[in-house]
Amino acid sequence: MRVYPAIALLLSFVICTPGLAQTTYQTDASHAVILDAETGEVLFSRNADEAMPPASMSKMMTVLMLIEAIEAGSLSLDDELPVSEYAWRTGGAASGSSTMFLEVNSRARVDDLLRGIIIQSGNDACIVVAEAIGGSEAAFADMMTDRAHELGLTSASFANSTGWPHPDHRISALDLARLARILIEDHPDYYDIWSEREFTYNGIRQYNRNPLLGVFSGADGLKTGHTEESGYGLVGSAERDGERRIIVFNGMSSNNDRATEAERMMRSALSDYSLYRLFEAGDPVDHQAEVFMGEAPTVALRVSSDVTAGLHRRARRDLSVSVSYDGPLVAPVQEGDVVGTLTVEAPDYEARTYDLVAAESVAEKGLMGRIGAAIAHMLRG
């Protein structure tokens, strides 16, 4: 295996200063992730792939299911859905949990239920929606899990529509961030609701619990969560100067700690982290692979896909890029053949590898050329 140092194109990024960049972001959250909304690139991660109890943050999936039902035409914003005794007793005023204060045996407009879930975090509203779409909350939870897996949110396992504590109700911080990205990008007509500061239903005014709204410029979503098991968590999003970041964290010890961490993490997400485009698909690298028995002694290499790295500004100075291939390559080599890898590494960044392909074809030598090359090879030992 031949390994080469960073290529010349990236010398401006490769300045080795060991020990300079330590942990790029410190947080007391048990699980956290910062995501670039445009690309889906992970900029910071702490236990982000580990399934965790999401509390009310999982209501984003309930909202997605409702929005998809509306867009499919099976429900409309003007439809009125029945409030069952189960929904009222389990998630309404009688439950003592987050509620929209729906009245038992009443009917509620889908438009109101949507705001009741997003703004008021109403457990009763979630159950009403679940029963209307799935027939029962348990069946709806299975539908939520199946749909999440279809969307690539493989850590998701839902046991209810509300986020109420249950050992089988889990999803990772990273998948929550990806779910937020789906809501933002694929369903923009409904996204403004996430930034509404208050909603009044049944004469009761309740306020959006998102601590970023009205405090952090550019913040416009999405959802808080809290149970004894999960601690205090947040899925937040903000946009500044055309850049949007999504943050997710969980496991804070108090409401005040959550508010402080939300602002601090979002500020860092937008100020300290950037997405660096190192190569575009088809760009050459500054090394050539040796070719044995080829009409040409070497072949140029190109990257097969875009190469980007989302990094803290302090980690950027320790970025390194290396090229490797099993060589020499044996002719014939076809243009586009995968012949090596390019590896990107940096502090607090999970190393990534990208395929390198042959930039052109190299034919095998003729018979006499192969004999001559074999003799030369033997003479060289």
Score class of each variant (00 low, 15 high):
residue 78 D to A: 14
residue 221 G to Y: 03
residue 211 P to E: 04
residue 230 S to R: 02
residue 159 A to G: 02
residue 129 V to G: 02
residue 75 L to S: 05
residue 272 D to W: 08
residue 262 A to S: 15
residue 367 L to S: 12
residue 17 T to M: 11
residue 272 D to N: 15
residue 177 A to L: 08
residue 378 M to Q: 09
residue 201 Y to H: 15
residue 295 E to I: 06
residue 339 V to H: 08
residue 174 L to S: 01
residue 18 P to T: 09
residue 246 I to G: 05
residue 355 D to W: 05
residue 180 A to D: 07
residue 80 E to L: 10
residue 202 N to F: 08
residue 321 V to Y: 04
residue 200 T to R: 13
residue 10 L to M: 06
residue 140 F to N: 05
residue 8 A to T: 12
residue 110 V to I: 07
residue 170 R to T: 07
residue 217 S to L: 11
residue 62 T to F: 00
residue 238 A to H: 06
residue 307 V to T: 07
residue 169 H to Q: 09
residue 105 N to G: 07
residue 33 V to Q: 01
residue 174 L to D: 02
residue 38 E to M: 09
residue 251 G to K: 01
residue 220 D to Y: 10
residue 117 I to F: 10
residue 76 S to Q: 11
residue 63 V to I: 15
residue 264 R to K: 14
residue 286 D to N: 12
residue 183 L to G: 05
residue 38 E to L: 14
residue 177 A to P: 10
residue 71 E to D: 15
residue 78 D to Y: 11
residue 259 A to C: 06
residue 124 D to M: 00
residue 248 V to I: 12
residue 110 V to S: 07
residue 231 G to A: 03
residue 207 Y to A: 11
residue 329 L to I: 08
residue 83 V to M: 06
residue 225 G to R: 02
residue 90 T to N: 05
residue 16 C to A: 13
residue 381 G to I: 08
residue 113 L to M: 11
residue 291 V to S: 02
residue 96 G to N: 04
residue 64 L to K: 05
residue 352 R to S: 12
residue 168 D to C: 06
residue 239 E to W: 07
residue 266 M to L: 14
residue 92 G to C: 03
residue 293 M to P: 03
residue 133 I to Y: 04
residue 121 S to Q: 03
residue 7 I to G: 14
residue 40 G to A: 10
residue 225 G to M: 00
residue 204 I to M: 09
residue 136 S to N: 07
residue 17 T to E: 15
residue 212 L to W: 01
residue 243 E to Y: 09
residue 85 E to G: 12
residue 162 T to E: 01
residue 166 H to K: 08
residue 29 A to Q: 05
residue 62 T to D: 00
residue 264 R to T: 07
residue 214 G to N: 06
residue 113 L to I: 13
residue 142 D to N: 10
residue 99 T to A: 13
residue 175 D to Y: 02
residue 145 T to D: 04
residue 71 E to P: 05
residue 244 R to G: 04
residue 10 L to A: 03
residue 177 A to V: 10
residue 36 D to E: 13
residue 205 R to K: 15
residue 154 T to R: 10
residue 255 N to K: 12
residue 283 D to L: 09
residue 11 L to H: 14
residue 304 S to K: 13
residue 292 F to G: 12
residue 25 Y to M: 12
residue 184 I to G: 01
residue 4 Y to F: 15
residue 222 L to N: 03
residue 20 L to N: 07
residue 73 G to I: 02
residue 345 E to W: 04
residue 197 R to E: 13
residue 109 R to Y: 07
residue 131 E to M: 10
residue 296 A to C: 03
residue 263 E to T: 12
residue 212 L to M: 14
residue 44 F to Q: 03
residue 319 L to I: 00
residue 190 Y to P: 03
residue 121 S to E: 02
residue 78 D to F: 10
residue 142 D to V: 09
residue 281 A to P: 04
residue 325 Y to Q: 00
residue 8 A to V: 08
residue 178 R to Q: 12
residue 28 D to G: 05
residue 156 A to V: 01
residue 323 V to M: 00
residue 332 P to V: 08
residue 243 E to R: 13
residue 321 V to E: 13
residue 162 T to I: 01
residue 347 P to S: 13
residue 263 E to K: 11
residue 273 Y to Q: 11
residue 37 A to Q: 13
residue 45 S to E: 14
residue 163 G to K: 00
residue 334 Q to D: 13
residue 342 L to D: 00
residue 37 A to F: 04
residue 188 P to R: 10
